[in-house]
């Protein structure tokens, strides 16, 4: 390596396509054959060095680079647009947006930040799953172990906990902003409905996670929460018309939620599966729909030009 680095200029000519001729295989006397092989090797090495330098100097010209990114990245509007449109992670964005729509004042950024916190939660949650067994007695010990022995375990748990709270707050503020700007109005009615479902799923995600440390806090919170279910009209054993329909603590809706008549190991397992598998999948699916519909309904709602009262078109009455 050292001598090739010492003579960078010289092998430029040999680096040209002609160098790879592969000749010199014919029989000859020993010493000249060895010399030829050595010379060839030197030429190949010089060429490789040259190619490496080219690659480092302009990696965007290599086939690998082109195959990954597919488009040129230069300072043209076309490239800027393609940079967003041809990227799977960015393609939910349009290439261009209204100049006013980037104002934080209008959007509060709560929807996007909610999504980001959700990603953070999936990431920290997956890491937490490596250290957690959803069964009684072990579950609580896992948390203690996580807090005291796992490197950064405490930070991981804290981030997951506070991230969850942050997500609930952000979802509510996002909804507040969407309401204040009237963004649920035509044509975005259905996306508001999807958003409400996402709010419910967010609360359920947070609630199912509450039980998992299996401490007094989670246990009693979930006990209080699921005790409501026994009062479900018709379907709970303590609810209106429940007993009349044959509901008992062992066949009502609360039994179905907990997998038993008390919050115990089955409830822990159910909470775990809802929390780590079922609801994240559901929520992800609804998020896909939510984001997709934002685009299909014409992008972010505003700031739109104001409409005046005299411009209301009266609807035809039947």
């Amino acid at each position: 390596m050292a001598d090739t680095n010492g003579q960078p200029e010289k092998p430029v000519d040999t680096g040209s396509p002609a160098a790879g001729n592969g000749s010199g295989n014919g029989p000859g006397n020993g010493s000249s054959a060895v010399a030829k092989v050595l010379a060839d090797a030197k030429a190949v090495r010089a060429r490789a060095t040259e190619e490496l330098k080219e690659t480092i100097k302009a990696p965007e010209k290599t086939d690998v680079w082109k195959s990954i990114l597919r488009v040129k990245h230069d300072e043209t509007p076309r490239s800027r647009a393609l940079g967003v449109l041809s990227n799977v992670f960015l393609h939910l964005h349009p290439a261009k947006i209204n100049r006013d729509a980037v104002a934080y004042k209008y959007t509060w950024g709560m929807g996007g930040m909610t999504f980001y916190v959700y990603i953070t939660l999936v990431f920290t949650g997956t890491l937490l799953m490596f250290y957690y067994h959803p069964s009684k007695i072990i579950a609580f010990r896992d948390i203690l172990y996580l807090e005291s022995d796992v490197p950064f375990g405490k930070l991981l748990r804290n981030m997951h906990r506070w991230g969850a709270h942050l997500m609930v707050i952000m979802v509510e503020l996002h909804m507040f902003r969407v309401f204040l700007t009237g963004s649920y109005k035509k044509p975005r009615e259905f996306n508001w409905v999807v958003g409400v479902l996402l709010l419910v799923l967010t609360l359920l995600l947070s609630f199912t996670g509450y039980l998992l440390p299996d401490d007094q806090l989670g246990f009693w919170a979930v006990t209080v929460g699921t005790n409501m279910a026994r009062a479900t009209p018709l379907l709970g054993h303590a609810g209106p018309f429940g007993p009349q329909l044959g509901m008992t603590p062992f066949n009502d809706v609360r039994f179905g939620l907990l997998g038993g008549s008390i919050v115990d190991s089955n409830a822990l397992l159910r909470a775990y599966i809802w929390h780590c598998v079922a609801i994240p999948i559901l929520a992800s699916a609804f998020m896909v729909v939510h984001f997709w519909r934002v685009r299909k309904d014409g992008g972010i709602s505003g700031p739109a030009p104001m409409m005046l009262e005299r411009e209301i078109k009266d609807v035809r009455k039947i």
């Binding site: 007695i137 609580f140 948390i143 203690l144 807090e147 405490k154 748990r157 804290n158 997951h160 906990r161 506070w162 709270h165 609930v168 609360l203 947070s206 609630f207 509450y210 440390p213 299996d214 401490d215 007094q216 806090l217 989670g218 246990f219 009693w220 919170a221 006990t223 209080v224 929460g225 008390i262 919050v263």
Partner: peptide, 23 residues
Amino acid sequence: NAPLEEPSNPTLTMNPSKAPWYF
């Protein structure tokens, strides 16, 4: 730090026993 109380104990009721804040 995220809260962690004693292990769950159905025989020892927390007072007040509260649901998560959003509920």
